[in-house]
Amino acid sequence: MLILSTIAVAAAETAESSGTLPQFNMDTYASQLFWLAVFFGVMFWAMSTIFLPKLGGIIEERRNRLADDYDKAAEFKAQAEEAEAAYHQSLADAKAKAASIAAETRAQLDEEIAAMQAETEEKLNARLSAAEASINEMQAEAAAKVQEAAVETTQALVEALINETPPADKVTAAIAAVNS
């Protein structure tokens, strides 16, 4: 409203003075169009060939640089992750290896211990049986000697009593009969 009324006032004023707005004075059109073409053309030329390519170039370069940096960062991250995975892998490998070595050693030791135990037991058993055998032998020997002594004593007693030596086999039989 304000604009309209102002234009109305201005128009009225103009009507009083010169009759027409400067904007509608066609004598000036050719000059305005000519110089507009010149200056707009010069500016378009300067912008499109000098300034905009320069400014666009640096913006583009920055964008590429940023993209490159992002790519590089992603690459480094991937590498770091790879290294971490390799580290974990080797750690797990080492642990498994250590465990297997321990188990192997334990098994070997168990085996050796068992072998030594068996050997020792065998030796002991052998000695035991040898000792038993010798004891038995000594017992038998002793028993034989006792038998012999008994026979001889019996013969000597019988000789002293009746002055006759009984044969050994009869004495032996008599002693066996007494013993049983």
Partner: peptide
Amino acid sequence: LDLAFTNSS
């Protein structure tokens, strides 16, 4: 053809 350099130009 008046192409004068004016205040507009």
